[in-house]
Amino acid sequence: MTTTTPAVTTAILPPRRLIARTLGTPGAVAGSIILVLLVFGALFASLLSPFDPNATRVCPRLAAPSLTNFFGCDLFGRDIFSRILHGAQLSLAVGLLTVAISLIAGTIIGMVIAFLGGRVDRIGVRMLDVMLGFPAIVLAILIVAVLGVGAFNAALAVGISGIPRIARVIRSATLTLVGREYVDSARAVGASQTRILRRHLLPNLWPIVIVLGSLDLGTAILSTATLSFLGLGAQPPTAEWGAMLSAGREFMRYAPWTMIFPGLALFLAVMSVNLVGDRLSHVLDPRASGHV
């Protein structure tokens, strides 16, 4: 397991320049276009869907793609195109939730152990390292075993299993800040510990947090879809890409579209997020490149 510490950039670019710089490579432009389409599709899934994603028998079972059913139909006669649009909604929401869980908990834990230092830090780092010794998927499955299956629980499980890595990085970044002058002077004027953490450390950690989040979002979407594929996440009949792929597996001989399109959607979503995230991390911190 490697944990890298992105450099601490103290200033965030103004949003407009940030966007302009982020769009600086063909890959990032392609990623952004796909991502915008995806977000648009997810936001307006209900309007754009020709059919109710869960309505059965809207078309013949396992019907091939056609002008009415762009991506064909599944075993229950549901429209795959409509289900994929609604799946986008779920995937993005679940991905964001997952990343939020890792980031919020990881940042708090990392900041606090670094700030308190001493024995807390030593024991904390030791625990984090042990947690990092679990293969990520095993840790997530173990958590699902406790929480039970479901889309929300899968997000929780992937989110929690991502905490140690974030905490480790944030801890190192915080350590480089704790020795700085403004922290010392805040201490000198008697600022409370939580105030120092919130007002002096956190603002300086934002760029790193954003970099970590943008690099993790793609993985989060992929991991939660994986859990659903394994039957541990979203359950049928929920329109979710991983679950759709799992169902499509059995019928691919007769109806390959049942697995081609959900997989394609998942691939494009993860790739677009990765392309944009990778570029964003380059822009915010040239040193943190290439750790997806």
Binding site: G27, L245, M259, G263, L266, F267, V270, V292
Partner: peptide, 18 residues
């Protein structure tokens, strides 16, 4: 390799089977 990290391995497996 860059594109590959975004490929769901279960999808690749299914495409290979198909």
């Amino acid at each position: 390799a860059l594109v590959g990290v975004s490929l769901p391995s279960f999808w690749i497996g299914m495409l290979l089977i198909y």
